[in-house]
Design a protein around this nucleic acid. Structure first.
Lengths: 204, 204
DNA sequence: GGTGTAGCCTAGGGATATTAGGAAGAAGCA
DNA sequence: TGCTTCTTCCTAATATCCCTAGGCTACACC
């Protein structure tokens, strides 16, 4: 009987494809095995269990998304870079809804696996370097990174969940939100004196 | 044999409690039945199936979150209202992680059920009325609502997923992000003709 | 008290996750 | 080529789920 030639990566890829097609929560060991023309039990050689598989899909998605963003922002700066960054992010979520969902869910990922994965770390680094054009100092820079990532993730997530049922096309709001974020980064406010009057720079 | 006195709401509540305790994906019909001291099959009188139960949990969470936000923002305006709104949002996500997760996942909710649920609609309305203090006109108002909701959802979602492993406490970033959002709403940029490095964002 | 409805049960089919152990291909070495 | 060993994949088996069908009984209403 011919071997299927499976590896952990091929199993993960099959699971990711399945996630995009039918939704992450319908990614089962059985379904992945069927897609690979293999019995369920055979998968456990390459993947610890279903949760491990989900974690691997999440890491794969993080890697792919990071690569797409890196390519899109290469050689760009300022608002150009911001728009390219954000558009690549949103496009990845559209192109791979199942994979993207995997990145949202709090998953216990094998620490050893996580250490070898570059995606999550490089994604944050990319955000930092993209924001360097805006001349923010710490800790504002970290806060801005978190704000940007939160907004992009929140927008794509709400959009995917059908949260923008309003008449106005999500695309139009997206463009204007990027305008707004760009303006915000250019004029990042000092510590708000309304709630706290004392000096602004107080890093840890 | 005494009856358990189940209703759809009681089943939903048990599922929601379970979701907060062990995670939404471990909310099974069996587990909910066990918690209620009842056999699995008995639940199907009150709930169509597992997906229906998840949808009901999501609607319950939306309702609860909306109520919390409404209470928190009552009688406040401007930045006070924004902070109260955002803090109530984030606190609900912290207090009820499982319920909150249910609101994120794209769920096919029974349309009839959805029509009777007030949470999702009132939540958006609350955002609109909170933003009225900032004097934005359509379509900027809708875009601002979407930006705010995206950022709040994204921040709490990333925070819950452990996305802020950096040294700086998430709480500190949260406060500064609200400062930033307030500043952004006060100086919402006009439509950006073309990105020019030296243009001053003309406030509306 | 009689009757009907609904809530809860038992029984069971089908699917899934996971483990244990066996057979067969592939790879190294004589 | 023949032997050894490792890995891959399989069969078999268990436990847990989801969900349906049909029966029994508590409770409301007459």
């Amino acid at each position: 009987m011919a071997r299927a030639g499976l590896t952990a990566d091929r199993v993960t890829l099959a699971g990711a494809e399945l996630a995009d097609e039918v939704g992450l929560d319908r990614v089962t060991m059985s379904a992945v095995a069927r897609r690979l023309g293999v019995k369920d039990a055979s998968l456990y050689v390459h993947v610890r269990n279903l949760e491990d598989l989900r974690g691997r899909i999440a890491l794969l998605a993080a890697d792919e998304k990071t690569i797409r963003i890196a390519e899109a922002t290469a050689g760009r700066a300022g608002k150009d870079a911001l728009v390219a960054y954000a558009t690549a992010w949103r496009k990845y979520a559209h192109d791979h809804p199942g994979r993207y969902t995997a990145t949202q869910i709090p998953i216990e990922i094998d620490p050893e696996l996580l250490a070898r994965a570059l995606g999550p770390w490089r994604a944050v680094e990319l955000t930092y370097s993209m924001l360097r054009a805006y001349a923010l100092d710490e800790p504002d820079l970290t806060d801005a990174v978190r704000l940007i990532r939160s907004t992009l993730h929140g927008f794509t997530s709400l959009e995917a969940a059908g949260g923008f049922a309003h008449a106005r096309p999500a695309e139009d709001s997206w463009v204007r939100c990027l305008d707004a974020l760009h303006a915000l980064l250019k004029h990042w406010p000092a510590h708000d004196p309304v709630h706290d009057e004392h000096d602004e720079g107080a890093p840890a």
